[in-house]
Amino acid sequence: MICLGIESTAHTFGIGLVSSSGKIIVDINDTYQPPPGRGIHPRKAAQHHCDVAPKVLKQALQKSKIGLEKIDAIAFSVGPGLGPALRTGATVARALAVWLEKPLIPVHHAIGHIELASLTTGAKDPLVILVSGGHTAIIAFGDGYWRTFGETQDITLGNLLDMLAREAQFSSPGGSVIESLAHKGERYLDLPYVVKGNDVSYSGLLTAAIKMYKAGCRLEDVCYSVQEVSFAMLSEAAERALAHTEKKAVLLTGGVAANKRLQQMLNIISKEHNADLFIVPKIYSGDCSAQIAWTGILACQSGIKVNVDKSFIKSKLRLDKVFIPWR
């Protein structure tokens, strides 16, 4: 079975093909980049997706050398994300499903991150650390649902890094810029450290960091300290959840999973608790279509599909509210 997956939750529009054996046949993504110092404008992101959709589809089909007739299902990211961006992807998906007369599969974007990471790393029954622009959550699976052990009470780790980068006039997503600047940081600056049980809160940290930067602190030192504090907070929450759940595997996924310092911290924690750390490969850490296509296969095989006239996007859809029959 082959599933065509469409990703369009935020800045990335992508179309990918994945087979039921878990082979990622093709994964074409095109990312909208807002001007430096600005965030994603939902309408402009949607316009970008609309502009690149035909080109991306063509590329995916040409590169895969797979004809449309070989495709068994169409999966699309149903949410959570930016409404206009989601609607663009959903429109393409509906059109293909109707035209090809194939089932239309709604996929929760974050579950896509988890499933693709599980596929590519082989992690079994992990404590998942999901860190991206949309999510910062510590979760584990139990009885049909992902259960939230800890999460951010306000902005996500990806938000924090992006907004700091934006403040320094870099373009979004800003995680990698912050990481390379942090590398050159020397001085550790005191920033608010807020852990509430297994939850974290980053909004105060962001405000304090921006204040420091504006007051003339070296940007490298600010980035270094923000990484040190924010990652330590998440790591502590993760360690609490790990000690509580006693899982033997930890899976790090989402865009921020590419950060080496965060990987290093979680590696130390996992070792302390005799758990193996699995990290999603860098090319699949950010938003991509393969995550939707692969989860589409899992969902389709469990009989999940949606009628086109009921295939509304859900811009606010919590990860722990989605029933997962395949795990």
Binding site: A140, G142, D143, N198
Partner: peptide, 15 residues
């Protein structure tokens, strides 16, 4: 927040 953490513990571990 204190009670929310308690609630969360029930929903994650003793669902």
């Amino acid at each position: 927040v204190d009670l929310l953490l308690m609630k969360r513990a029930f929903y994650s571990t003793h669902y």
